[in-house]
Design a protein around this nucleic acid. Sequence first.
DNA 1: GAGTTTGAAACT
DNA 2: CAGTTTCAAACTC
Length: 784
Amino acid sequence: MDSPESNRIPAKSSPSPAVQGSPFFNYISNLSPIRSAKAARYVHSFSQTNFAIPPPPVFTSPRIDPQRETSFRGEIDAAGSDLYRQGDTHLKPEPIHCFQKEDQSCSPSGCIDEYLADLVDMEDTTKSSDLCAQSRNDKPMILERFTSHKDTINKDYNHVDSHMFLGSFSGSQHHEKFLPQFPRIFGLRTAYVQDNKVVDCSQSLPQSLQSIETYNDFVDSSRSALRVAAKDADQHQRGIRRHLQFGVTMSCKDTGNENHDTNNLSLPEGLTHFGSLVSYHTEPSGISNSWGAGSRAQTVTFLSSSCPSQSVIPAENCGNHNISACTPSDLALPSIGVIRSDSMGLDSNASQKLVDKLHAREEKQIAVRNHSSSKDLDSILVSSVAGEIYAQVEDDQQETQAATTVVPYDGRTLTSQNANMVEDQASPKRNRKRTKCINESEGCKRCNCKRSKCLKLYCECFAAGVYCLDSCACNNCFNRPDYEDTVLDTRQLIEARNPLAFAPKVVKHAMDSPANIVEEGNWTTPSSARHKRGCNCKKSKCLKKYCECYQARVGCSNGCRCEGCNNSFGKKIESIYRRAEKWKNPSHEQLGTMETQDDFIKSGRAHQLSSTWEELADMSHLTPLSHCHSGAVATSASLNIGDGSKVSQAHAYQERTLQSSAGYPHSHHSPVSPTTNLYRSKVLPDISSDNLLYDILEDDTRKILENALAATKSVKVSSPNQKRVSPPQIRSQELRSSSSQGLRSGRKFILPAVPSFPPLTPYSKLKDGIQGSHGDSKDGTSCQ
DNA sequence: GAGTTTGAAACT
DNA sequence: CAGTTTCAAACTC
């Protein structure tokens, strides 16, 4: 990939002030309408941190804030795309031993260790300020070093590092000088990463010494910038999320393998979003392309707008954002497909193999612990380059920042993780009580697993598809990049058992979940999102975070099997069966504590019972046809069916009707007949009022309820809500099939040909009925 | 911070 | 598939 423009690299490595002051430069710099503000912030940021070179993660992850991002874009544009191509083509094949050599030459007590030892905990601001002061004096030297000989690199490393990391360039002039080199830095950085996984990169070594020099300079720069990123991340938030979507990991892994030889990575289809992220880390040409011409802006847009919830972090609510459709699972779809196909082939020994693998890894972990100290530097450096994706969300600005590095590709890149992990597990830090992110949501979880090894769905991190953090308080954690294989295997096992185990528990759109198709008519539950499988709460009444629905801030649905649902985000419509059963057995719940029927009525049980008819009304308000049929059901049931079949029929029909009409939002019904409008206008506005709904029922329809209640005496209700078995469609099928023979026979009445709702009460009469039935309400409750 | 409660996940 | 156990988060004190 030799570039004819390669000889221009040295010249561009340190753009001259003349270029910066050129009209073209000014023009480019002013392209962005918001540049001034952002540039100010950018400069300010750098003046604060005194970073000569912006952290490379800026290019590699959504961690960058949009403003900064935009600023970069403008300045990078100014640099010209050819420069970045040069940087990539020239520098990416550089062998890694240069780094290693530097690492060895670097004093263990030097700044490198200080900042690499614990990328998370480095916060020695005092030292930083001191070094910063020192570094200012070295500013000219550093600039010189960018064109200095390669032999001086090691010697200057600490200086450069100090300058780069602690920031010696507080002035915009300097940072502008360095800005055009970002892509090259980045390219080198990725080359470095590649070299950790691809050994043979030497064929395309740069031929010119200048390139080598430049490369080494950028090696320094990139390393420093990495540390900058780490420090920056730490300074901004403790809740850095080492985010790695397993599927993405897998994809990335595959991608890396695919591109070992070609150095020309092309992300698999379906990883478009992630591709724009991964390409930065994995493949120089990808980087080059990303920042070149057309794709650049797109990539920048992606990064700048990529809230973790949307692009990286799975199923996360960044600052209470709604979970976007681009969940981890979404991102990982391709890999999930692979996983799933593999998982289907898992034999019965897979579990045991996994256990054996875990044991082996434990031993390995111990071994690593014994040797970690001597390798910390290298390994951590590797980690800093080829570690994971960090993502964070600032609580106040919901600013997505992520110091992104490469997802580990193989065991070699995991060495550092071993070291870190061992250190973590050996240190008291491991036992620290888990602390919540300020904005802790699903994506900002930190587990506290003790016995699950963070390899079960008990572990929130694992369940969310992310690796555990150092900040997690888990014990014996295997949900780490260094156990990637184990993690993936475990994931496969779990997915083999339940293909949707890692799917987002909450679907944004009700229609996403088959369980919610039936629930579209549930006006008590927000239709914007639903828990996919529903909760099974018994005691919490869906009012505590024990309830997954409540925790996800979504209403319960018919898919839930919760009892006494009182979810403030939306109650479940209890099965008519269940209500009838409750009515029949008031002692089932709190009614047992009531002494009189009056107490029962006052307590709202009457409402609960009457709200049974919400379901019928629900049918009616979905579509005119459904309304008609619902009435038919009710009427025919009351007139022609005996006992409990009426209720079951109504329920079954309701479900069928809802299914057939699913997708109609409550507020978007198809044109309705006058009678329907009447019905809706009178009923629906008050539909939340159980009393009213119940009150409008005419005698015969109320009689249905009586029959329904009576049915519970003779029909042993097999409530499908009792146990999580299958989606509602299936449940409804079960409902019908599991019902008594009488119920089955009664199903014959539920036919399209059933007569429509008989006397569609005129408005005046209906109104009167409503008014008049108020007094009957209580009577109705005692109609048993 | 320890202990309890709760419900999902895992197991039998 | 139903019942039981395990587990970790949520909650309470």
